[in-house]
Design a protein around this nucleic acid. Structure first.
Lengths: 219, 219
DNA sequence: GCTATTCTAAGACAC
DNA sequence: GCTATTAGAGGGAAC
């Protein structure tokens, strides 16, 4: 419980702004680190070449962050290998976990400002070919991964259906109960008056509400 | 960090004994509560009757704890309805969760001293027919429950197999590596001495270990 | 026999 | 788009 506002709940715009600026700077600093200290170093003094076309004009960011030697042109022409995936996409499409994606050594990733808001947590971008390699090793094969993905989809669908059915059943149950209750409420209960003398000499009782008459032995 | 032993790490038998006694008493107290305040009250002033055979000689514990009217004889003759299950059995056999079993209102249970040790957590005993009713409602039907149980069994088996296969593969990999390493180790590395003058006027170098000789340009 | 811990998954929410 | 939270599941350890 830290509150330095002397008991007042002030939330003036200036303070909020400052807080935002602070957060924004922090995110920026985190991103900057990756440029200063690339996790992968290349020993060779020669100029590295694009592994696709051999040009020396390779993408330095890809080299530093992913240890991947590729030029801009090849990168754009082969998105099935060199496009970037957000962490969320990696989790959804390749069924990787938080822990696996968190580790920079295990799964290199490039930090970018969050497109929604610069104060939000940085976006983490992974190289598709590295993600695929890792995922296929993790799940056994590309097909096994697909199978697991389908399995989870089916599971989810089943759950949704079940919930829906349950809701329906519950609704029916309550409707039935309500109908039953109404019937019970509507069911007429005779309200008989005092015993009178009937035409045949027997006693009779008449319902005040519907006129229904019963014969009774005594009156 | 509570340590009232003045810096010394004493663990004399007397103290341990006292601690045990305290725990034992606590467990006993917990169990006693259920006898004092049965969660279910019966309104009728008449003597309740066994729902199986009609005798008035019903089991009072079953009545108080489970709200179940049954005599000792019937209880023992129909274990498929009246036998008791531990919490662990309920979880394993009927796939109920901790939260569901914890609630005395939802799932009445009888506390008994832990058979392993009286200082251990009390044993929680549930009435089979109540557990079955709840579980079947939860899973949809008796068959659906069985199906889910089989599904989990299969899942577990699959996981175990996968792990085993993985282990085997890993072993093979390491064995191969070891073999490869050994070969590499056994592979002879020539250790040449100083350059001598050869018969043909060229320089020569001889391996100390196997005598293999190479010619060199200069010496 | 039970609980505490760890890991995973998923929907909701704030960032 | 990410993280914090919640709930469930499973294997092992201490009670």
């Amino acid at each position: 419980m830290v509150n330095t506002k002397g008991g007042f709940l002030v939330e003036d715009g200036k303070e909020v702004d400052e807080d935002m600026r602070r957060k924004e700077k922090e995110r920026e600093r985190q991103r900057a680190v990756q440029s200063l200290e690339p996790p992968i170093f290349l020993e060779s003094e020669r100029n590295p070449k694009c592994q696709e076309c051999g040009t020396v004009d390779i993408d330095q960011t890809y080299r530093k962050v992913f240890g991947c030697l590729v030029c801009n042109k090849c990168k754009n022409e082969k998105p099935e290998r060199y496009s970037l995936l957000t962490k969320t996409e990696c989790k959804e499409d390749y069924l990787l976990t938080d822990a696996e994606l968190r580790d920079q050594e295990l799964m290199p990733h490039l930090l970018k400002a969050n497109p929604h808001k610069s104060t939000f947590a940085n976006m983490m971008l992974f190289l598709r070919c590295q993600v695929e390699e890792f995922a296929w090793k993790k799940w056994g094969s590309s097909e096994a991964l697909d199978a697991e993905w389908e399995r989870r989809m089916a599971e989810k669908k089943k759950k949704k259906n079940k919930k829906f059915e349950e809701g329906l059943r519950e609704l029916r149950r309550r409707t039935r109960e309500t109908v039953w209750q109404r019937r019970k409420d509507e069911e007429h209960k005779h309200v008989f008056g005092v015993t009178e003398k009937g035409a045949n000499g027997m006693g009779k009782q008449v319902c005040h509400e519907c006129g229904f008459t019963i014969e009774v032995e005594e009156f």
